[in-house]
Design a protein around this nucleic acid. Structure first.
Length: 272
DNA sequence: AAACGAATCAACCGCTACTCT
DNA sequence: GAGAGTAGCGGTTGATTCGTT
């Protein structure tokens, strides 16, 4: 840890020699949380200077947004979230912060990491480029339907009991040792609605060549009363033990799908 | 138990966009 | 309009954790 503090980027500025880098300590976290509670989460350079933290404003901002923010959600990416990431990435590409807006409590960093570690790994495993049409086809025709099946299989019944839900108190400090218990404000109807929309989008985006991508995007994401800014979130209970490996397509599935694609030279699909 | 490689994820960096003077 | 300061974004790095041999 100590070498972090020596690992300064550039000695050009005298004051840089005082800048701390590397992992944050609990003490620093506490200072930042208290300072933000009093002064708000804006003017990060001011916060960095005034708080006495030997961190840059950027570093403070990042720590707050990705870790200390009360509504930040930790733990495994749920099936629904995986589906949303795949879907939204197919629309917007590496617009991580934009994608994160539709996944309450998730940070752009987390989504980016998920994409790089899980999705790109699959692409690498299949020896195709993650941006290739073939990979997108595989994603659309194998992985996403599979996810939808699993989502439907676990969708709460109409007698879904909201009493079981855990409301996370935004005022509670986050315990860094144990993951935050999944579940806060549950809204199963909106949740389901959201994924119906997403699956519709899945179909329309490839079947309506006359419709532009942004048309589809506006209609489905924004045009049906779906308001990401106003939503309360859609966390699932009991997703903590989610086995990500099961959510990927198997080698067999991928192999046969790719085999099929190559044999039939399917080239009609396009994501633009 | 130790060594090693792979996977994960927190944090950094560079760049761009935005706001204010 | 120009320039400075700041916020935000996406790419990358590297320490830590996990799994396997």
């Amino acid at each position: 840890m100590e070498n972090y503090e020596q690992n300064l980027n550039s000695p050009a500025h005298e004051e840089d020699s005082d800048v701390r880098k590397g992992p944050w300590t609990e003490e620093e976290d506490a200072i930042l949380v208290n300072f933000v509670a009093i002064h708000g989460d804006a003017r990060w350079n001011h916060i960095a200077r005034s708080s006495g933290l030997k961190r840059t404003g950027k570093s403070c901002r990042l720590r707050w947004l990705n870790y200390l923010r009360p509504d930040v959600r930790r733990g495994n990416i749920t099936l629904e979230e995986q589906f949303m990431i795949l879907k939204l990435h197919s629309l917007w590409g590496n617009r991580w912060s934009k994608i994160a807006q539709y996944l309450p409590g998730r940070t752009d960093n987390e989504i980016k990491n998920y994409w790089r570690t899980r999705v790109q790994k699959q692409a690498k495993h299949l020896r195709c480029d993650v941006n290739s049409n073939l990979f997108k086809e595989t994603m659309k025709n194998v992985w996403m339907p599979r996810l939808m099946e699993r989502i439907n299989a676990q969708t709460p019944s109409p007698t879904y009991d909201p009493v079981e839900s855990v409301i996370t108190d935004p005022g509670q400090p986050i315990d860094k040792q144990t993951p935050v218990e999944p579940g806060f404000v549950l809204n199963p109807d909106q949740h389901r609605h959201q994924f119906v929309q997403a699956s519709e989008l899945c179909a329309t985006s490839s079947n309506s060549p006359a419709e532009t991508l942004s048309d589809v995007q506006d209609r489905v994401v924004n045009g049906s009363g779906y308001d990401p800014a106003g939503q309360t979130g859609f966390l699932e209970l009991n997703d903590w033990g989610c086995d990500d490996g099961d959510n990927m397509w198997t080698d067999d599935e991928s192999f046969w799908f790719l085999q099929d694609q190559l044999c039939h030279e399917t080239t009609s699909f396009s994501y633009n």
